[in-house]
């Protein structure tokens, strides 16, 4: 599927943030639902060929989403998103981090803060996600962990596949 939907990915190394801005060919309410209902999140959150499965979802301030991303060979990456503020259907903020299967947050690893804003763009909508880390050291830790966990190699294989597809 080719599309001309806006996609911006901006890295700000000085402030340890990345900003992802993306347009969707749907009304804001629908996109908001996809972000906040686990049965919908399960259908898109993990990049292919990984799959998402929700273990717990309580979308309210102080509640959390506990999920796993599973690779085709059964490797599991557990994550937990703790919701801090929610303003339907404009914005939510959350802390995203790694957890184990029982939902215990990995305290060794820093969590990133997500600030997600939904706006209208005529018949379309735009989602802007700012992912920020507390410090350069925190970001470094996450990068190191990512390389150890092998998530990277999964995505690299994906990258290779994409390159063969676009040739």
């Amino acid at each position: 599927m080719t599309n001309n939907l806006l996609f911006d990915f901006i890295v700000d190394k000085k402030n340890n943030t990345m900003t992802i801005k993306r347009e969707f060919a749907a009304k804001r309410k629908l996109v908001w639902d996809c972000y906040t209902k686990s049965e919908l999140l399960d259908q898109w959150f993990a990049p292919k060929p990984l799959k998402t499965r929700t273990k717990h979802m309580d979308f309210r301030e102080g509640g959390y989403w506990h999920y796993v991303m599973v690779t085709p060979d059964g490797e599991e990456y557990w994550g937990r998103t703790d919701y801090q503020t929610i303003t339907p259907i404009d914005n939510y903020t959350a802390l995203d981090g790694f957890s184990d299967e029982s939902g215990v947050i990995n305290s060794e690893l820093p969590r990133s803060k997500w600030d997600v804003t939904f706006t209208d763009a005529s018949e379309h909508s735009i989602v802007r996600t700012v992912v920020s880390f507390g410090s350069t050291e925190e970001l470094e830790k996450v990068i190191e962990m990512g390389m150890q966990a092998g998530m990277t190699s999964t995505l690299e294989r994906l990258d290779e596949l994409l390159q063969t597809l676009t040739k």
């Binding site: 992802i20 898109w44 990049p47 292919k48 690299e156």
Partner: peptide, 29 residues
């Protein structure tokens, strides 16, 4: 190189994730 690579992978992850969301939205609306 590791830092650059990581951000590259994050970009790819978001691209793929949002391709999924495009498809899902198309089936819903």
């Amino acid at each position: 190189a590791a830092v650059e690579r990581w951000f590259g992978e994050q970009r790819l992850l978001w691209e793929k994730r949002y391709d999924n969301l495009d498809n899902l939205l198309a089936t819903m609306d």
